[in-house]
């Protein structure tokens, strides 16, 4: 009885208090986002609260807006490119670190996490300066390179977590049964990694699709969806479209992340091919 009360959240009052605080935090996290979604269907098309009625007019207008559609497609293309690069580089690095012992092994993780953890304004300016110095053009390729540098770690973290959980014994068994290292990779290692790579890739896609701080420095006139949204902040006649674009931006980052969490919560990875 005594320690029931003493351990936080086990006593009735403590538990109720925690529950109330938890729900309050969840409301705080979701209220602003739901507001944008509500405005996307708001009849008056202005930002005054409360909304005046329901309409699909703005969704329709957004679907027919050339600039918005182009920006959306540009962002999808860039995110796919950055994800592809991140998938390959992140998986390679994870396999190297997880299955080898070498000097400086911990440093590799530290180096890979740096691009995502250093201030965005510094990363953006550094990349922009480098492209200018080396006479490489800014634009879609520059954005893909920039995004890939900090997307790699997302794939790397997912894959290395998976490889650490599934021990190397299956790979040793495969070798003992006469498979060469390519066969072991194809039939043993890769099937185990597959969903982790996909989960990392989905996160990379969501991050790239949403990025603006670094993108701004290397875009060189290319309009991604976040840049389109940012520039529309200043245009009073586009506020209604921004809400719809916001809805699209929320969905295209949240849906991949939702799938990614489903992929990694499934721990039964061994034995499925």
């Amino acid at each position: 009885m005594r320690y029931d009360r003493a351990v936080m959240g086990r006593g009735r009052i403590g538990r109720l208090g925690l529950l109330v605080a938890t729900i309050a935090v969840l409301i705080f996290m979701y209220l602003p986002l739901s507001l944008v979604i509500a405005y996307a269907f708001n009849k008056s098309g202005t930002q005054t609260w409360p909304p005046t009625g329901f309409t699909l007019e703005w969704v329709n207008a957004a679907l027919n807006n050339r600039g918005l559609k182009d920006a959306f497609m540009t962002s999808v293309g860039i995110a796919l490119g950055a994800t592809f690069v991140a998938m390959i580089l992140g998986s390679l690095a994870a396999m190297g670190v997880a299955r080898h012992r070498f000097f400086g092994r911990d440093t590799v993780s530290f180096l890979l996490v740096l691009p995502i953890s250093l201030p965005g304004v510094v990363t953006g300016m550094a990349l922009s300066t480098t492209f200018a110095t080396t006479d490489l053009p800014l634009g879609v390729m520059a954005i893909i390179v920039g995004h890939a540098t900090f997307c790699v770690v997302l794939v790397y973290n997912n894959v290395i977590a998976r490889l650490r959980r599934v021990s190397g014994t299956l790979e040793e068994a495969s070798a003992d049964l006469g498979a060469d290292s390519f066969q072991t990779f194809r039939f043993v290692t890769f099937p185990q990694m597959r969903t982790a790579i996909l989960a990392g890739a989905l996160l990379a896609f969501a991050l790239s699709f949403d990025e603006i701080i670094v993108t701004f420095f290397v875009a060189g006139g290319v309009k991604t969806l976040p840049i389109w949204i940012f520039q529309s902040f200043r245009l009073a006649n586009q506020v209604a479209l921004v809400n719809v674009a916001g809805l699209a931006a929320i969905l295209l980052s949240v849906i991949p992340v939702y799938i990614a969490t489903r992929l990694t919560s499934d721990s039964s990875t061994v034995g499925r091919t």
């Binding site: 602003p32 986002l33 507001l35 944008v36 609260w49 996160l203 949403d210 916001g246 949240v254 969490t261």
Partner: peptide, 29 residues
């Protein structure tokens, strides 16, 4: 709940700022 916390983390950064512009503005929520 992990999913519920993860999703706002990834939901569009600009739109989150934008939603607060709507909330904080003079005739906002």
């Amino acid at each position: 709940m992990v999913v519920a916390v993860l999703m706002p983390l990834w939901a569009s950064y600009l739109i989150k700022i934008y939603s607060w512009k709507l909330i904080l503005s003079e005739d906002g929520v």
